[in-house]
Design a protein around this nucleic acid. Structure first.
Lengths: 225, 225
DNA sequence: ACCTGAACACCGTTCAAGT
DNA sequence: ACCTGAACACCGTTCAAGT
């Protein structure tokens, strides 16, 4: 990829770059910004150090290792996930749809973070808190707690899988950019026919989300709504 | 991780290690075996060279770079996906379920490959062929071609997302092994209640698979079955 | 307590050289 | 054509030293 004309991550009123105190919070936010801007190849401890004008080793006083940096980045991205749980219509269907759409939007805003959230478990209070409050709100639906958790996990898995296919970074370097045309070459007529008209990933996401919720609708529940 | 008592990948009748001719096929199979045995940290060009008794640079005569090696590994894993498309009951529901379960089984057999198939597009003839034949068989169902492709992609996304959560390698090194207990600490009562009784991922997979198919069942279709 | 500099043990890949 | 050896430009992380 091209050098990409880097601007400093923060400047003061006169345009001079400014470096706030080195904290876990500040390091993690800078890491997320770099990941968004340059992708995974741009986020090394050394490059992060250069960007922040600091010796790369300084980070190890605030984070045990690079994995912890990744977990912080995941946390920072999840912090943008603000699902309106007690909105005007608190029906289970709306709550689950809002959760799935909220996650979808956050992940599409940070495509380079998707492979991280897809594979690293997130135990930050923010994530656990949202999940817990959502389950509480969903309790009024009459579904069993176990089933509610299965629903949330299913929506999470599908959404992540979908965004990975849509925009995820290829693990282990860019793909050879081949064969894409082979599909259209007539060797696979059924595939070719089904693909005509483009992909429209967002429409497909909504279509499958509705199907999933329709499926959940048939699961057993107590008196509730 | 521990050194893990490595055996040679192939031996002759007397137990002496044997090295077949260096071909793309042989390199890729060895890479998959190492990935299965040692995980991603064990699969470097240098270690692969040591394992096969060959200079790491020799691989570059058969593969352009490590990304191509990964694509070969994906291909080798997908080759195990053998969905019985024209089985005794060729109804669309059975075909889609067989596809999802087949993919689920293959991925669980090669957990370290999951992050690769999740993020790198696979255009090998094997994959395209299966998809094309499946779409052909599903054509008798009366669903629109576009919708059939949406179904297959949805099952793929959900299955991959599910297996990632179940067994995937954390991208960027192992996770700090923390906080797991925090969930049970009573800070999140709804979560704690929903989790009691363990995870049983395979049951959840089947439960959600059924829900998805139930949802698809309501989509419009022509005369068909 | 917080940051630095040198060093260690790795990477993928290029390139010139050998057969 | 296929493989080798040395070299380049990187990594994450440890450790002793500075303030």
């Amino acid at each position: 990829m091209p050098p990409a004309a880097k601007r400093p991550l923060a400047t003061d009123a006169t345009g001079r770059p400014v470096r706030p105190a080195l904290t876990r919070e500040y390091i993690v936010r800078a890491a997320l910004a770099i990941l968004d801007r340059d992708g995974p190849a741009g986020l090394s401890m050394r490059k992060l150090g250069a960007e922040l004008g600091v010796n790369p080793m300084a980070f190890y006083h605030h984070l045990p290792n690079k994995g912890a940096l990744f977990d912080g980045v995941i946390e920072a991205a999840y912090a943008e996930l603000d699902v309106d749980i007690d909105g005007p219509d608190g029906g289970w269907r709306n709550i689950l749809a809002a959760f799935a759409r909220g996650l979808y939007d956050v992940l599409r805003r940070h495509p380079h973070v998707v492979p991280l959230v897809a594979t690293r478990p997130a135990y930050s209070p923010a994530v656990l808190g949202v999940a817990d409050r959502a389950l509480g709100a969903l309790g009024r639906s009459g579904f069993a707690d176990r089933d509610l958790l299965v629903m949330v996990n299913a929506l999470r898995s599908f959404t992540i899988g979908h965004v990975l296919a849509e925009t995820g970074d290829p693990a282990g370097g860019p793909v050879p950019a081949a064969a894409d045309a082979a599909v259209l070459l007539g060797d696979y007529p059924n595939l070719a026919r089904a693909i005509t008209g483009g992909h429209r990933p967002q429409e497909q996401f909504e279509q499958v989300l509705a199907a999933l919720l329709d499926g959940f609708d048939r699961w057993p529940r107590r008196a509730g709504t």
